[in-house]
Write a protein that binds this DNA or RNA. Structure first.
Lengths: 116, 116
DNA sequence: CACATATTGAACCTTCCGGTTCACCTTGGC
DNA sequence: GCCAAGGTGAACCGGAAGGTTCAATATGTG
């Protein structure tokens, strides 16, 4: 369990940092209602097509978006990444947080676990 | 609601990017069991004290950690940030994801909401 | 006081990020 | 075939990230 929480494989890294940008979060929300092209996605922002293309690529590499070339435009929609691992990490942290203790309490809590 | 999900105030940005680093996530887990000094936190990693100090600062600016100088060392513990907003964002996204539809279905789903 | 400990700040380095422009390629419409 | 539209790749740019070293500071200990 703890292993999974501290996994070094970079998946969580990529997902968290993909989500760390407000434009990318907005793109996800947008794609939640319907697929869109790069142009569609770029339109609401003061950003070039190339710029939006880069954001889409980051989301794609995180598994959050999947794209497909259709004619001269590119259809972007939500990918298979369900954010379950992110959710798990956050929940895990919240449990930690709720039980956060000062050193002494932590000591007794640990002892309790090994009592007989 | 949607406003909160696309908030531009940078809070989510700071939290997500603080969480995007594996060292920082490990530090949080570590602090979940007990407070620790900069040296304590640095010890498990191949990193300088100065390097760890910087990580702690990032976590502090995200509200995830709070520190206090005690004698010649600095006591670090979990901060007040409960990640509720992050949790809310993730849940929101998961709802989007579960209902992700192609354009046509989205249209009918919207109609259904306004039927009389 | 003298010395070790724990951290800190400043300066520096390299790589990544988010953005741009410009040139180019493919595709759709006439 | 010709032209416009949509996207793409390469090159560049300024600034932030993540790390270092080194010198300085403040605090315990004997």
């Amino acid at each position: 369990m703890l292993n999974r929480m501290v996994q070094q494989d970079g998946r969580l890294d990529r997902i968290f940092s993909a989500l760390a940008d407000p434009t990318r979060r907005a793109v996800l929300v947008r794609l939640g209602s319907a697929p869109a092209t790069i142009s569609d996605l770029a339109e609401p922002f003061a950003i070039s097509l190339t710029g939006m293309k880069k954001h889409v690529r980051v989301l794609e590499e995180a598994g959050l978006v999947v794209t497909e070339k259709v004619g001269r435009s590119r259809r972007c929609r939500l990918g298979t990444e369900r954010l379950d691992d992110v959710m798990a990490w956050i929940s895990f942290y919240q449990r930690l947080w709720e039980r956060r203790l000062d050193g002494l309490d932590a000591y007794f809590t640990l002892r309790k676990g090994t009592e007989h």
